[in-house]
Structure formats: C-alpha cells, structure tokens
Amino acid sequence: MDLLTGNPILLQTVIIGGTGLICAAILAIAARFLHVHEDPRIEAVTALLPGVNCGACGYAGCSDYAKHIILDALPVNLCSPGGEATVRKIAAFMGVTATLTERQVAVILCKGDDALATRTTLYNGIADCGAAQQIGGNGKACRYGCMGLGSCARICPVGAIELVNGLAVVHPDLCISCGRCVGTCPRRLIKMVPESRFIHILCSSQDAGPDVRKICKVGCIACTLCAKVVNGVGITMRNNLAVMDYSVPVTNEETITKCPQLTIVKRSGTKEGAA
C-alpha cells in the first residue's frame, strides 16, 4: 500500500490501466450477450457482389440485396454492375440456375453540344438540370436536347458520364447499368439499352424539320430515310422524330450513312468495343 501511495506515477498507472481493463471486460461481455446472429451466407453473398452500392437491384446497397437473396430467395441476376460473372458465382453458391440477361448500357439521346446546337440566351442559376428545366431551360434553343448541366454525371456512382463541350456523354465501358442517371434527366434523354446495340439515333427533338435546322446542326429533321432503310422495322417515325426501337436489333449501317444530319452514329456499347 505504501508503495502505491508513495509513488504517484505508479498510482496513476494502476488507476488508468485498471479503468481500461474494466471497460474492456464490460465491452467483451456486452459483445457476447448482445451478439446478433446473422446467417453467415449473407456475408458470403455480399462478398461475391461488387460492392458499388449503386442500388440498381432495387435494394439499399449490396449487403441489403444479399440479405434478400438469402431470406426472400430473390432472383440472383439483379446485380447489373457485377454482370455475368457475379451472377454465375452467386448462382453456384446458392445452388440455383440463373437466367442471364444482357448487360444494359446508358445512352443519351442528344448529340447537340455547344458547337453544334445553338444557345439563344444566357443562363444564370443553379447548375442543376431539374432546377433549370423548372424556369424554362438553360438557354439552349432546343427545348428537347441535353442542357449540359451535368445532373446525370453527378449522380453516376462510377463517373461513367462526362460533360464534353456542354453535352453529357456516356462511356459505355465504364457504365455499370445501374440506371440512376435515367431519372435525373428532366428531359428524359437517357435510355438503358442492351450493350449489343451499336446504332443510335442521337436526337429527341419533336420540333418540325425546318425548326430543328435553325437551332441544331445534328438534330433529326424527320426525313424518314433511316426508317425507310429498315422498312420501319426497328426505327419508327413519331412526332417529327425517328425513334430507335431497341427491342429489335438494327444492324444495317446504311441508316448511318443515309442520315443527312449525321444524327445517327455507330457506338459500340460493349466493354471491348468501346475500349
């Protein structure tokens, strides 16, 4: 006892050290008694998922999806970022057969960047597409085209959308098919399409041809040439606009060469093709 009271350094060491030990013991006991048992398979499935937490599956992140796979026997093919490999691995782990769906890639149906499409007025407000749309756009003459304020680029979890000269452009090789960008576009320009589709009509304008010509060098003028090339199969005319029906593969590259406005482009959606 004298040793302790006579030596303040030792006394303090004992007090602090003792407090620490007691607390550690309490924590250890608490961890044991309050332990929540979780199916170890959930952790295993989570580990198989890519961990992007993008929400494309419809659940709040990868572990949440894993939990639902185990508990609710959810289909194992909902993870688009993981792609085929992930689906196969989870299917093998769960002992089920999964139907594989083709990878979907985002495409933005506008080609009018600042060099090609006219801006009539200046915009002075928040750099957010939804906010700009509410006050009548951001000065781009075309009321249907990409405003280039980048709301889609900001929400993309993997940086697959880039703003190039006032136009949002998707990098298909980076796209993880989560589809979060689709809802951010107030002009509904973004579509998720199967990666094997490589011909795209990059315009959404419903203005009449002459009006389009005045404000955009690459807008669809509804000349119908592309639709005629494919006999209306896969490309249909709607509201002054040629619309690609992505459920039917269009592979005839004459559609591209015939387009007088260069609206139609060839752009591979696959990782290999784009890279």
């Binding site: 407000g125 928040i126 957010d128 939804g130 906010a131 509410q134 006050i135």
Partner: peptide, 9 residues
C-alpha cells in the same frame, strides 16, 4: 444566392 430556385427545386 438562388434561394427561390433552391426552394422550387
């Protein structure tokens, strides 16, 4: 600050 635009949004 664009307060009204923020409010509307």
């Amino acid at each position: 600050r664009p307060l009204v635009q923020h409010m509307r949004q």
